[in-house]
Write a protein that binds this DNA or RNA. Structure first.
Lengths: 187, 187
DNA sequence: CTCGATCGTTCGACTTGACGAACACTCTAC
DNA sequence: GTAGAGTGTTCGTCAAGTCGAACGATCGAG
């Protein structure tokens, strides 16, 4: 069972209101900053509706939180995720598996990923929010990691950090390549 | 040309097509699985439009990728620490080596460690600052990790998180045990 | 108490995204 | 050659999301 639930409108509604109150802004002020009608925001916080991508993006900018915060539910403080566990939230393909281990809480803003990759098509990523920094520790194998313009070849045990707000890539060179990735956003 | 934080419609368009072709499905088939019109999907992959939350969610399910992947693309390099490099700062003992990879900036408060351990005396840690949380991803071997009162046995690939403000332990069970540890303080 | 400002909600009008059929195209089989 | 099944695209229609204004509620100053 992957995702039994529907669209996380309820979760987003809660996150919107929580983040807005955290920075102490009124509904009208956030709507103004986001460039949307406050009636729209009012409805969203009430859990009614089906916001468009632009609306959500504008709100994440106005609230000054990563977009993922609005869609990734918070996680418990203590938990165990087995290597063989069904994916709580993972991105899979034939030669690349990225499992989200720990989503960033509101205050700290960082995600931890376990990556398992096979040689094949490189995993390219578009720029993230400005201020994002990513850290990779290769557990096994060999990979080409870093900005698309200047990637670095790393082997088991190596560590590499790079800005997340430029296009970047993760390409396994050897079979059975694994890594731990920490993506953090500095406010 | 690079917008500071424009809606990632273009990125989503690329991600949609990339993921769809990765699993080798036709546009019509994905649309059918997602329960949306193929014309809608066609437009989205072309980069035109502004999809609603429900539409995106349905597509992430149909493509069997996490929702966050479509809206929050993964990661990119600035600093490289090779496995054989002499660590600038490390804590060593006969059967335990912890290398500091990335010290926590003032704002974010988190440290990333690479741990190499051998079976022997458990590595016990006294409580850190209140609000500290530690995350461990085991790269290789087998270890007993977590609160001293209730440790968890983990193997390669496993993830475990536990409060850092209580006594905790890291004990290698197999030779050649390695791990990545992220220690963070929540304000 | 009254006025004013700000809060969040509700309402009708407009804009726009989603739908589904028809379309042009490619490839294969007969 | 033609017929068929597959691909992805375009277009008119309808439903739904968004907008802006008006609404009642709340709080503080005079």
């Amino acid at each position: 069972m992957t995702e039994p639930s529907g669209p996380p409108i309820a979760a987003i509604a809660a996150a919107l209101q929580q983040e807005r109150r955290r920075i102490g802004l009124s509904l009208a002020e956030v709507a103004r900053r986001a460039g949307i009608a406050k009636s729209t925001l009012s409805g969203l916080e009430a859990g009614t509706g089906n916001p468009s991508l632009e609306t959500l993006w504008a709100l994440s900018s106005a609230l000054e939180v990563p977009f993922s915060l609005l869609v990734d539910p918070p996680r418990p403080v203590v938990q165990v995720i087995r290597a063989g566990d069904g994916p709580a939230l993972s991105s899979e393909s034939a030669d690349y598996v990225a499992t989200l281990l720990s989503a960033s809480p509101a205050a700290t803003r960082r995600d931890i990923y376990a990556i398992s990759a096979q040689p094949g098509e490189p995993r390219r990523s578009d720029p993230h929010l400005p201020g994002t920094v990513e850290h990779v520790v290769l557990s096994a194998g060999r990979a080409l990691v870093g900005p698309t313009s200047d990637p670095v070849e790393v082997t088991a045990g190596d560590y590499v950090a790079y800005p997340g707000d430029v296009p970047h890539v993760f390409e396994a060179i050897e079979p059975g390549t694994a890594a731990v990735l920490v993506s953090e956003h500095r406010a």
